[in-house]
Simulated scan of single mutants.
Amino acid sequence: MIAETGLASIFAAAAGLMGTVVLLTVLAGGARLTATTTATTCNETSPTEPLSAEPCGQFPDVMPTGGFAERGVIAVLAALHMRGVPYSWGGGNANGPGFGIDQGAHTRGFDCSGLAEYAWAKAGARIGGQTSTQWDAGVRVPRSQVRPGDLIFFATDPARPATIHHVGIAIDTTRMVHAPSTGSTVRIDTWAGDPYREHEFIGIIRPATTRTTASRTTP
């Protein structure tokens, strides 16, 4: 795996506008780009939990002005902003937290794929609301090349994509932000080196930023 210092170098090399991350808001009839600073985004209060400077501190205020690197950072920051939101089975979509189904019917929040859909919608990409569609929503990348915003997938049988049951959003080479399970909340966890996660790791997908996929419908 690449070191986190190497990851920071990737950001620095791709730097464009000083102190600016361009957040994409998809509107009817087109897209509008709104400029804000990384620090401002990181310092905003999440719905239930303040977002500390770490891990946002690894994202410099110098950001690329286009392409995956920028949108990946937007996606991961959007997910980090949801820390503390309850897990809800089947909950959440591109618009934000929502009531789920079955055991999630009375909880407004996200499941793993709902959080991923929301985060990438903020970055201007529609990746679908199920892990099965998200697995096909981009290109496969080796874990040595993981970047912020990449989708990390886990399966009961890593040899069979049909058994994928969980997805997280990469923060760096070792950590992800995700909605783990009923009774938990959106949070940061270390996946690399964790025996359970390593046993079920199946691959990493880098979403295609121009893809349009139907969203799930969540109350």
Rank of each mutant, 00 (worst) to 15 (best):
I2V: 12
T5C: 10
L7F: 03
S9Y: 07
S9P: 01
A14I: 00
A15H: 00
G16S: 04
G16Q: 01
L17C: 13
M18C: 12
G19H: 13
V21P: 00
V22D: 09
V22A: 06
T25V: 13
V26I: 12
G30R: 07
A31R: 14
A31W: 09
L33K: 07
A39G: 09
A39M: 10
T41A: 15
T41Q: 14
E44I: 08
E44P: 07
E44A: 15
T45D: 07
T45W: 05
S46P: 07
S46V: 01
S46N: 07
P47N: 02
S52M: 11
F59I: 14
P60L: 02
V62I: 13
V62H: 07
M63Q: 11
T65L: 12
T65N: 13
G66A: 05
E70L: 12
I74C: 15
A75Q: 02
L80Q: 08
W89L: 08
G90R: 09
G90Q: 07
F99H: 08
G100T: 05
I101V: 15
A105N: 06
H106T: 15
S113Y: 02
G114P: 00
E117G: 03
A119L: 08
A121F: 15
K122I: 04
A125K: 00
A125Q: 00
A125M: 01
A125W: 00
G129H: 09
G129F: 08
G129C: 10
G129V: 06
T131Q: 00
T131A: 05
T131N: 06
W135K: 11
G138L: 04
R140M: 10
V141T: 04
R143Y: 14
R143M: 14
S144L: 07
Q145L: 15
R147D: 11
P148W: 13
G149D: 14
A155Q: 06
T156I: 14
A159Q: 12
R160G: 04
P161R: 14
A162F: 10
I164M: 12
H165F: 12
V167I: 07
G168L: 06
G168F: 04
I171M: 01
D172T: 08
M176E: 11
A179R: 01
A179H: 03
A179M: 06
P180D: 01
G183F: 02
V186K: 05
R187F: 00
I188K: 10
P195I: 01
Y196E: 07
Y196P: 03
R197P: 00
H199R: 09
H199V: 00
I204G: 04
I204T: 12
I205Q: 02
R206C: 02
T209I: 10
T210Y: 05
R211P: 02
A214W: 00
R216K: 15
T217S: 13
T217Q: 11
